[in-house]
Amino acid sequence: MPEHILSGIKAIVAMNMKMDGKTQREIGEYLKVDRSLVSHYLTGRHPSQRVLKVASDIIDMPIPYSLKIIHGFSDDKDLIKNIITYLYTITLKIDYEKCIQCGACLECKYGGIKKIDEYNIMVDSENCVLCCECIEICPINAIKIVNKKLEE
């Protein structure tokens, strides 16, 4: 069942990518699926409309919830990160005015938050898979999901 919904989400991403002018090969590589499957996604042969509906509902949920659910579908964090970055233009941001330097977020198992020196930390977007667990761990809610475009 989770695999089906993940397929639904992939199909939605594939359709978005197609609209952005990406080739089937590029889509296949990005989503780690066969070109033939990409073709199924794009022609609507697979997955079913019901699955697509659920997938679309999940994508439209408030971001922290949808991220959590999407992360639950696969342990391939590269893939999940690809999906999320295509669906949402988000990044994590530390509110340095709130941060108390407790270091709890440094334990991110993906290395998404790194120490710059013995005092300062920053989000390492390369490593961050947008699992957002640091948001929950931060004792004073200093980490936020922000719109990447607005930040740049």
């Binding site: 340095y96 005015e97 709130k98 941060c99 108390i100 330097q101 004073i140 200093a142």
Partner: peptide, 8 residues
């Protein structure tokens, strides 16, 4: 330098 610390 920390605003949060200054506030506390």
């Amino acid at each position: 330098p920390s605003k949060a610390w200054q506030e506390r």
